[in-house]
């Protein structure tokens, strides 16, 4: 008997944090313009000590002003999607659940687009205007997961196959609406491929990074308070209830927080697929299925996976690049098929 201890949890997380650091350094180094490790270290130290004004070389500017923000975005988006996927898998009792497969990402995309269309017609302060897109994405995500949940219920029980099919159908319906909107509306909305595939290349305002980071920590923290409850839920809602889990409360907290995570991620990066599916499985394989370990390791693993995928997206066809969503789909879809054949009865 080896029950989980805080010590072991911290050890596992620091191991992944080291890997994340290495991947971030690699991501900073590689790109269309190569940068030496020495220059990289020097410029990063200057940023850390608040002397970014001293960074003069063009290379340094590329690293600090272009690559670093993009990598931080990848860290947050990857972690958000992965935690959301882990939560959906436990709550829906479905190993194939993930924000993208369930159509939740598409719902968030549509919500964000509708918010962007509405924004010019509203007279609100600039601060609220900036919050409108993530809010729209959150509402889109929450509405979609609610719809999928009810579609997936048969005779009062969640049915794995029906749930997934419901997600796939809703996803294709929503992407049709997105295409329709994109084709009929002109203006400065970001393009189709951004919302349908996802990429991390769009720069954000500085405040958006804070907003994203704090939102991620709050939502992930909220889900983590239910980590032990999610372990019981793996055996079903009734059984969890008999073991002392307040099932309706856990369901509400986790659905809302996972929708917040998906909404935040999609509002800044579009619908990136499969990170929320594959990473939790990989972490479960390595660290086991206890959510007290799984949630933080999935967050770190998601960050590692997405930063890595984005580095590939930037470099494989340099000097141009592909959508990171294309990279995750190329890797994720075959793995999804593998899991589908292994898991579903």
């Amino acid at each position: 008997m080896r029950p989980l201890t805080l010590r072991r949890l911290l050890l596992q997380c620091s191991m992944l944090a080291v890997i994340l650091f290495v991947v971030v350094v690699i991501a900073l180094k590689f790109g269309a313009v190569p940068v030496s490790l020495y220059a990289l270290g020097r410029d990063l130290l200057r940023v850390v000590f608040g002397q970014s004004s001293q960074i003069s070389s063009d290379y340094g500017l590329i690293v600090v002003n272009i690559r670093l923000p993009r990598i931080l975005l990848g860290v947050t988006v990857g972690a958000s999607l992965s935690v959301a996927g882990t939560s959906f898998q436990a709550l829906l009792r479905n190993p194939l659940a993930d924000p993208y497969v369930l159509g939740v990402s598409m719902g968030a995309s549509l919500g964000a687009i509708l918010a962007l269309i509405l924004e010019p017609h509203l007279t609100i302060s600039p601060l609220f205007a900036a919050l409108l897109t993530p809010l729209g994405a959150f509402l889109g995500a929450a509405a979609t997961i609610t719809a999928v949940y009810f579609l997936g219920r048969r005779e009062g029980q969640l049915d794995s196959a029906t749930l997934l099919l419901g997600g796939v159908i809703i996803s294709s319906f929503l992407s049709a609406i997105i295409m329709f909107l994109m084709n009929t509306l002109s203006g400065n909305l970001r393009g189709l491929s951004f919302w349908l595939m996802g990429d991390l290349s769009t720069p954000l305002q500085k405040s958006a990074y804070w907003f994203l980071g704090i939102g991620f920590l709050l939502a992930t923290g909220a889900i983590y308070t239910t980590a032990a409850d999610l372990n019981m839920l793996l055996a079903g809602e009734k059984e969890a209830m008999h073991l002392g889990v307040d099932v309706p409360r856990v369901r509400l907290v986790v659905y809302i927080a996972a929708s917040v995570l998906t909404g935040l991620a999609v509002s800044v990066s579009g619908a990136i697929g499969y990170v929320g599916l594959i990473v939790p499985h990989a972490m479960r394989f390595i660290f086991g299925s206890d959510h007290r370990t799984l949630l933080p390791t999935a967050a770190l693993g998601g960050a590692i996976a997405l930063v890595f995928a984005d580095t590939l997206a930037r470099t494989v066809v340099a000097p141009t690049e592909v959508s990171v969503g294309a990279v995750t789909a190329v890797v994720g879809a075959p793995l999804f098929i593998y899991l589908l054949r292994r898991r579903l009865p």
């Binding site: 008997m1 479905n94 032990a228 372990n231 019981m232 073991l243 299925s289």
Partner: peptide, 29 residues
């Protein structure tokens, strides 16, 4: 209850420790 299926594999001791859930505190190590 009548036999329940687990979504992901667990060891017997992990399963039995779940019985202590209701007696634990919020973060439950």
């Amino acid at each position: 209850q009548q036999e329940s299926t687990l979504l992901f594999p667990a060891r017997a001791w992990e399963f039995v420790l779940q019985g202590r859930h209701a007696h634990g505190h919020s973060l439950r190590f």
